[in-house]
Nucleic acid binder design. Structure first.
Length: 286
DNA sequence: TATATTGTTACACC
DNA sequence: TGGTGTAACAATAT
């Protein structure tokens, strides 16, 4: 389940591998994943000149200035295979078996480059999408995204404003709401709450000044740390080189239901917030 | 076969 | 009207 650090890792890896290579062929095996209907003919013959990221969305800039947006959702992955046939880059949800065999039954979109290399979009669930838009179309889509954590607008003051805007929302839900802050999902919202010592079900409006500040720092810290470890491989994510991210070893909360707090040994509490499983330490988090 | 999974959206309610 | 909460949805593994 790629969130900001995983998507950023994929972006960095692919930026080293696919830019300026001519796309000789696009094979669309599952039509519903791409938009618009003539996706294939819009892309063939072009190349990617830059890859950007907004929240969990990848933005591939094409040589004719159109943009190809890629959202991996839960289980999408982008795998780059060099012309020798070796898997060079993966990003997203790994499929343990058949990883080396490409395309496999989850390979829904396949880009071929003129140098004989390939980029595979695989998705077990088929929730992800690839979409071509122009600059205006992207503006429309971008409207619904909140503050980008690594942008200049993510200041403590602006973070406070977001909380003030939705005082009744449970803090974890606020963190996960892409229209308020972009890029955090279930994993990093749990982790940020733990680092800040704040229980995930606290109401945004009830956080003390110091807690808001701690949470603000926690968000940046946990994201930066995870990016430096190439993301989290909880069950299912591998990085752009087919390796698991290392951050999973640093997880304090996510996926640790029924285990004990790494700091104080207190058994963690598990609950559902906004339909998502959440863990917190009743001793360390107030 | 029932359930869990996540980002996103639709919709009911006050 | 808008804030809020819940459910539905995509498709599959287990």
């Amino acid at each position: 389940m790629p969130e900001l650090p995983e998507v950023e890792t994929i972006r960095r890896d692919l930026s080293k591998l696919i830019l300026h290579k001519r796309i000789s062929k696009v094979e669309v095996r599952v039509a519903k994943i791409v938009h618009p209907y003539n996706f294939k003919s819009r892309i063939e013959g072009l190349s990617f000149i830059k890859i950007k990221r907004r929240a969990k969305l990848l933005i591939f800039e094409l040589s004719n200035k159109l943009l190809m947006l890629v959202h991996l959702k839960m289980t999408g992955q982008l795998i780059y295979r060099g012309h020798g046939g070796n898997v060079q880059a993966v990003g997203g949800h790994p499929i343990k078996q058949d990883l080396q065999k490409l395309p496999n039954k989850f390979s829904h979109i396949i880009f071929s480059f003129t140098d004989g290399s390939h980029l595979f979009f695989n998705d077990v669930r088929k929730f992800g999408y690839l979409k071509i838009v122009d600059a205006d179309g992207f503006k429309e889509i971008e409207k619904k995204y909140g503050i980008e954590p690594f942008s200049v607008s993510f200041t403590l003051n602006n973070f406070k404003k977001v909380l003030a805007r939705r005082p009744n929302l449970k803090i974890k839900q606020l963190l996960m709401d892409q229209s308020l802050i972009g890029g955090l999902g279930n994993i990093y919202s749990d982790e940020a709450c733990f680092y800040a010592g704040v229980r995930p079900l606290r109401r945004a409006g009830n956080l003390k000044e110091i807690e808001i500040k701690k949470l603000y720092c926690a968000i940046l810290k946990v994201l930066k740390l995870s990016i430096s470890k190439r993301g989290t491989s909880a069950d299912d994510y591998v990085d752009a080189y087919g390796r698991q991210g290392d951050f999973v070893r640093f997880l304090k909360m996510y996926g640790r239901a029924k285990e004990k707090c790494k700091i104080c040994d207190t058994p963690l509490k598990t609950l559902r917030i906004g339909g998502r499983t959440s863990n917190y330490c009743p001793h360390c988090q107030k």
